Computed example of a mutant assay.
Amino acid sequence: MNKALVERLSNAERQTHYPNVRPKDAATLLILDRQANGEFKVLMGRRHQRHRFMPGMFVFPGGRVDPADSRVPVIGNYHPDVLQKLAYSLKGPKTDARTRAFAVAAVRETYEEAGVFVGSKADADWQGKGDFAAFSERCVMPDLSPMRLIARAITPPRRPRRFDTRFLAVPADAIADQLAEGTGPSGELEDVHWLTLDAAKNLELPTITLTIIEELQNRLSADRDLAPETPVPFYYWRRKGFIREEV
């Protein structure tokens, strides 16, 4: 199964004619809602057709880590095993501030794109800046404690855009509030709704998104509570194809 995932992802990423750029740190959030029958649904949206990058594709909310994300106050800490996995790097461990920024970025992007506030109730006197002003208005602060790492993937060299993405997951009860509009203020995602994992696989998806869904299904078959110590896949390009390493 793992070999098939690697081969499909490698075959989808053969074009290498763009100038090489350094990948930017990014984070994506999979919000998982466990149904009464044990099935899981995940929150996804369709990228607006006006986007030059993956228009019309269904994705999880997420995006690039901003410098300010490392300075946003948070509630709770990552589980030590999750922190260790997030800090792992091919070029040396990340700092605590940088690893904290992964979850903050995923939470911020989820609000911007889906209108969902993920976090825990905070003191009324905290003053968020930028997008986090909307969080402080609702007395909500990002919470690292329920975050679980599902996978990590680095876009291969010589692609139009490159990201080093951490795919994080939280249970649906981590949602503290949401906008009535059913989407976020950025307008980047349309048709935001809950989908079963099988239904999601039938949509128009980036190959990496399909790969992550299948990795998640494989994990849930043996680890339904997403234990923090469970090894997670790390995809990166080497020579002529992807490598799948476990962290």
Rank of each mutant, 00 (worst) to 15 (best):
Leu195Pro: 06
Asp143Lys: 08
Asp123Ile: 07
Thr155Ser: 15
Gly187Ile: 10
Arg224Ser: 12
Gly241Val: 00
Glu109Tyr: 06
Asp173Pro: 13
Ala12Lys: 12
Lys201Thr: 14
Gly92Phe: 12
Asp143Tyr: 11
Met1Glu: 14
Gly128Ala: 04
Arg50Thr: 08
Arg34Lys: 15
Val74Asn: 04
Phe132Tyr: 04
Gly182Thr: 03
Thr95Ala: 07
Arg238Asp: 06
Gly62Phe: 05
Gln15Glu: 15
Pro80Ser: 01
Gly182Cys: 02
Leu220Ala: 02
Glu39Val: 05
Thr165Cys: 10
Tyr88Cys: 03
Leu29Val: 08
Ala87Lys: 13
Arg8Gly: 09
Ala227Cys: 06
Ala133Cys: 02
Pro93Phe: 06
Ala174Ser: 15
Arg52Tyr: 05
Ser186Arg: 13
Leu189Arg: 05
Lys121Asp: 08
Ala97His: 12
Gly187Phe: 14
Arg52Thr: 11
Leu32Cys: 09
Asp164Gly: 02
Val42Gln: 06
Glu13Lys: 10
Met147Val: 15
Leu32Trp: 13
Asn218His: 13
Val116Leu: 03
Gly184Phe: 12
Ala87Thr: 05
Leu86Ala: 00
Arg108Phe: 12
Leu195Ser: 07
Asn37Glu: 00
Val42Asp: 05
Asp223Asn: 08
Glu113Asn: 01
Ser70Gln: 13
Leu189Thr: 03
Tyr18Pro: 06
Glu7Leu: 13
Trp194Thr: 02
Asp81Asn: 05
Leu210Cys: 07
Asn20Glu: 15
Met1Pro: 15
Thr165Ile: 13
Ala172Arg: 10
Gln127Ala: 15
Met141Tyr: 05
Ala124Asp: 11
Asp223Gln: 00
Leu220Gln: 01
Val118Ser: 00
Ala200Gly: 09
Phe58Asn: 03
Phe135Arg: 07
Val118Tyr: 05
Ala176Trp: 14
Met54Pro: 02
Asp69Thr: 00
Thr207Met: 07
Ser89Gln: 06
Ile175Gln: 11
Gln84Met: 10
Ala153His: 13
Thr28His: 07
Ser120Lys: 10
Phe40Glu: 01
Lys129Asn: 10
Leu149Ser: 03
Leu205Cys: 02
Ala103Ile: 05
Glu190Asp: 15
Asn2Cys: 09
Ala176Tyr: 13
Arg98His: 14
Ala87His: 04
Asp173Cys: 09
Pro185Leu: 06
Pro55Tyr: 03
Val140Leu: 08
Arg166Gln: 11
Arg161Pro: 01
Glu109Gly: 01
Ala134Asn: 08
Ile154Leu: 08
Ala26Gln: 08
Arg64Tyr: 02
Thr211Met: 05
Gln84Cys: 06
